[in-house]
Nucleic acid binder design. Structure first.
Lengths: 349, 349
DNA sequence: ATAATTTGCGCAAACGATGTCGGGAACGTT
DNA sequence: AACGTTCCCGACATCGTTTGCGCAAATTAT
């Protein structure tokens, strides 16, 4: 099956390429009969317009770029599914780039997607990204941009995020209500919006319940391997060590679980553990892990919808807003209130 | 930061675009002094060649396409990481497409990547794919193609796969050696190469140990939601029900775990469970899940290397071969030999 | 000094599609 | 009969880059 061009159709029918082009795009100034012939011939040859040529011409490429830190991450891979679903049935293709949490690679990704002439960009910032000049340039070029999850306050664009404050508040309050008093918070880089919002939610819940906010119970992780162990060690050495851990990501939740287990700290007997994560196996862990679930797929869907709306109504400026999606608190055994009579068993319920 | 073209450089220096083009590519027929000027100017303007124009011309796009069933899957997302790592430091960009286990979408993805003029294609077949004519076309166009994991015997191309036979053999033998006699095998679509190989490994291990191969203990899954429950029900209704489950994928392993738990079947007391999976939390599940681990990252890396080798030495035909990467059997509690005296506890070890 | 090479560079065509012109034919209007 | 319209359609330029060909100047050979 060869790949035919507009020229082949033109030659076949003995007309000019312009006519073919116009017929294909349904221009009003083409004879219906000619149109029919062209359409039929295109069909017969299985003609597909060359997206590269289209992009070169500067017209729509019907592709959107997605730049995110890591695919191998529940949250992001689910978000991609949401994005693809929407993009697919609105006729767009999705080109995925991973920044690998590197600012440098993120900038390169942005350049790549610009030169590949995507119609719009969907981004979640790398953990290294402090400066957003590269994104300002995108906006200056008038390329629609929507941020999701890891957003920047410095950019005046549409953003789609989970209700991080609310989720963190709910998680913390839940820990307090189940009898915990010294709640450690393991989180990620402090300059990220999500970190700040979750921290604020955590703090607000403490304050509401008259608990002191203790800076020394907060630990900021990077994305290094086995970084949680040392944090746990430090924290547990305190004269009044934490009786609960609230972690801010998939990785930290699992890392914390592992670290606690290695140190022979029992959950929830010794400490409670709750994660801010999208782990789909949370229910099958030992112990089943309480989590704040972010609707990753939905975030992806809404972000994609907003972006495509912007692309298609490019002339009329669409309102810029921040969409906040509610999170859901799912309570499992890892944050159970301890009844001293209960046997120490994690059997399936 | 504007985006400059070769023309801008030409105008700036008062020379022709051809000269600039040749200078940039280091042609021998350009005066070294002119070259220097051009290089310097390009540097100063931060010139980046337009990949779209390059692709249109038909030359290398320095991009490779990756088409796989699902990103939201441990195995595939790790494989992508391996692919990206190699591609990145050999100067290629990776364009990822998801077939979503749909033949139709896979064909569309192939078309897309062809028309985006990727320099090569890395693929893992969708579970619906029985016919590979669309891939034969890729080969006919002389576009390098490497298959990984889900490969097709009908295509004469380089393939990179895990040692599915060996892994399945090891898993089955392990179950037998831990005292199991009726081993059920939950697997995926029967026409996939990996399914067949794993089944063969399973069967060979049974035969080696003098156990009967019982067709009725095999179940072929699709990718539907909660399909495992009914399978388990059917199997457990047998007069001699299975005493072990060997599952062939991430999804099936977790699904099986869930189904068994819901039916109050204890692992490993009532039945053993071992998965063929890349779940990174296998050790934290209740019970910790024995698994056959596929080196996903390595598979991705090797596949990417082979592909890029083929792209770059396109003239000399590279030998076509199937690379088989060893798998690793990791034994955890879910396949423990049952000691009747032991209490029924899944506590952390 | 003349002829033959070499060196360095520009012109123009191509890649596939779109869009701006403008022109011929057929029609209607005075 | 002469003019203006409308309807269809084709020639050509364009997007950014590469490349075959050719041509002038500089160099070397005769």
């Amino acid at each position: 099956m060869e790949t035919y061009t507009i020229k082949d159709i033109a030659r076949e029918l003995g007309i000019s390429t312009s006519t073919v082009s116009r017929a294909l795009r349904g221009s009003y100034e083409i004879n219906p009969e000619t149109k029919r012939l062209v359409m039929e011939c295109a069909e017969r040859l299985n003609y597909r317009p060359n997206p590269i040529a289209l992009s070169l011409k500067g017209s729509a490429s019907r592709a959107i770029g997605v730049i995110l830190p890591q695919i191998a991450n529940y949250f992001f891979s689910q978000a991609i599914n949401g994005i693809e679903a929407i993009a697919y049935n609105r006729g767009y293709h999705v080109i995925i780039f991973q920044s690998q949490e590197s600012y440098e690679r993120e900038v390169a990704n942005v350049q790549q997607s610009m030169s590949r002439k995507v119609d719009g960009l969907l981004m979640s910032l790398s953990s290294e990204t402090a400066d957003v000049a590269h994104l300002q340039e995108v906006l200056d070029k008038n390329v629609p941009l929507v941020l999701f999850d890891r957003v920047s306050a410095e950019l005046n664009v549409t953003k789609v995020v989970a209700d991080n404050f609310g989720g963190a508040f709910a998680a913390t309050e839940h820990l307090i209500q189940s009898g915990r008093k010294r709640i450690a918070h393991l989180t990620i880089q402090p300059w990220l919006s999500i970190t700040q919002e979750r921290l604020a939610g955590y703090r607000a819940a403490l304050e509401k319940h008259g608990l002191e906010f203790d800076e020394s119970l907060i630990r900021y992780g990077t994305f290094g391997p086995d970084e949680v162990g040392p944090m746990v060690d430090e924290l547990m050495r305190y004269s009044s060590p934490p009786d609960a851990f609230f972690t801010a990501s998939d990785r930290l939740a699992v890392g914390c679980l592992q670290a606690l287990r290695q140190r022979n700290l029992h959950i929830p007997e010794d400490v409670s553990l709750i994660g801010f994560t999208n782990l789909n196996v949370a229910d099958f862990l030992a112990p089943p892990l309480s989590t704040v679930v972010q609707p990753a797929t939905e975030i992806g869907q809404i972000a994609a919808e907003r972006l495509i709306d912007q692309i298609e109504r490019k002339h009329r400026a669409l309102p810029i807003e921040t969409v906040k999606i509610p999170t859901e608190l799912i309570v499992r055994s890892s944050t159970r209130t301890i009844d001293q009579n209960e046997p120490l068993v994690y059997a399936s319920k």
